[in-house]
Structures are given as structure tokens and as C-alpha cells.
């Protein structure tokens, strides 16, 4: 029986023909390796390994502006414990964060700040729209409220609810992790084509 077929991890994208060939050659090389005194080895693909480590070590930047913040505190606290997903340590510097969690109503006045924080984050980065307000403006459609943060920054995962329950947030986080696992390394550059070009920020110091 071909062991590589039987033990294929389910979240990995199908390998190419050339990769299959390399894997088939593996046993001979492994035997050689063991003969020379090695005692164990692990065969994997770089994408799978890198993505696996990325998805379980996400540092989040909590951009918390409104009532959803209460639910964020709940989900980040010990009862729901985001640490189980490797996503517990908030970084209050965008330069050290991977996951921008936008939690709460974003006003037009606040929008340039959100954009600036997003632009300061280093690749790879992901954005979570936490709550109805960030998904679509939620209950507010007026002169003050941004109708969904995807008009300002690209969003990876939307979590509806006003506010969403912690279970919903965890579900969203797991979905995002599954997506990260399937990403290409290096990143496909999705975040590089910033929304900048489409919607210029009015340059103005924030008072």
C-alpha cells in the first residue's frame, strides 16, 4: 500500500505531479538516511508547515470601538479562552500583529485611523469584521457610520451578530484558520494591492 496516499492530511491542497514523484522517491532516501545513523524524520510541504505555524500563533490587534467590545472581552477572557486557538495575545502595536480584529461601530471620523492601523501591519495579515456594525453598518445607517469596514480595508472573515456570541467568534476564528492553512506561501499578495489606490485617504493630521 502506498503510505503517502493513506496518510494525506485532509486540509492540504492536492500536490502536483512533480511533488508526487518526489514523495515516491522519499522512502529510498529515507532508508539511506536511517542507514547513516539518523533516527527519525518528518516529511511535509513548506506551505503546510508554515501555514500551520501561522494559524496557531496569531497575534491580534483589538481595534475596539463600541458595545461589541464587551463580547470581545468575554471571548478573550478565561471562560471562552481564545488561547486554545493560539490567538490570545493582544498586541497594541499594529507592527507586531497578524490579525486585525475590528470590534464595534466605525464612524467616518474613525475610518482614517483604522486604515492607518491596517497599513502599518506587516504581511501576512488578516482582518476580522466582528459584529454587525463592522460587517454592514449594523443598526446604523446615517451620516456618521461607515457601512461596513470592507469599504476601507479588505476583510477575511465576517462575524454577524449584534453583538456576536463568543461561540460565533470562535467559529469564525476556526474558519479563518482553515483558510490560512490553505493559503500559498509566500502570500498571494492579496493584501498588497491595498485599497489605497481605489479610495485615497484625505491627508490630514488627526486632531
Amino acid at each position: 500500500m502506498d503510505r503517502t496516499q493513506a496518510r494525506k492530511p485532509r486540509h492540504i491542497v492536492e500536490p502536483t505531479e512533480a511533488q508526487r514523484q518526489r514523495v515516491k522517491e522519499m522512502p529510498a532516501r529515507a532508508v539511506e538516511y536511517l542507514r547513516q545513523g539518523g533516527d527519525s524524520f518528518l516529511a511535509t510541504r513548506a506551505d503546510a508547515l508554515v501555514n500551520w505555524s501561522r494559524k496557531y500563533s496569531m497575534f491580534l490587534y483589538p481595534f475596539v470601538t463600541a458595545c461589541c467590545g464587551m463580547e470581545f472581552m468575554s471571548v478573550a477572557g478565561p471562560r471562552y479562552d481564545l488561547d486554545r486557538f493560539g490567538c490570545a495575545l493582544p498586541r497594541f502595536s499594529p507592527r507586531q500583529a497578524d490579525l486585525l480584529m475590528v470590534v464595534g461601530t466605525i464612524t467616518h471620523r474613525n475610518a482614517p485611523i483604522l486604515k492607518k492601523v491596517y497599513d502599518q501591519m506587516a504581511e501576512p495579515k488578516w482582518v476580522m469584521a466582528f459584529g454587525a456594525c463592522t460587517c454592514s453598518g449594523g443598526p446604523y445607517n446615517n451620516y456618521a457610520t461607515v457601512q461596513g469596514i470592507d469599504t476601507i480595508v479588505p476583510v477575511d472573515i465576517y462575524i454577524p451578530g449584534c453583538p456576536p456570541r463568543p461561540e460565533a467568534v470562535m467559529e469564525g476564528l476556526m474558519k479563518l484558520q482553515a483558510r490560512i492553512q490553505a493559503e500559498k506561501v509566500p502570500a498571494d499578495g492579496r493584501h498588497k494591492e491595498s485599497v489605497d489606490s481605489a479610495y485615497p485617504v484625505i491627508e490630514k493630521p488627526i486632531a
Binding site: 467616518h108 471620523r109 475610518a111 482614517p112 486604515k115 451620516y143 461607515v146 457601512q147 469599504t151 476601507i152 485599497v195 479610495y199 485617504v201 484625505i202 490630514k204
Partner: peptide, 9 residues
């Protein structure tokens, strides 16, 4: 609407 960033939604 008078947004500073993004489309005039």
C-alpha cells in the same frame, strides 16, 4: 454621506 475614506455610500 461625507466619508473621509472609501466610497460615498
Amino acid at each position: 454621506r461625507q466619508p473621509l475614506v472609501g466610497p460615498r455610500n
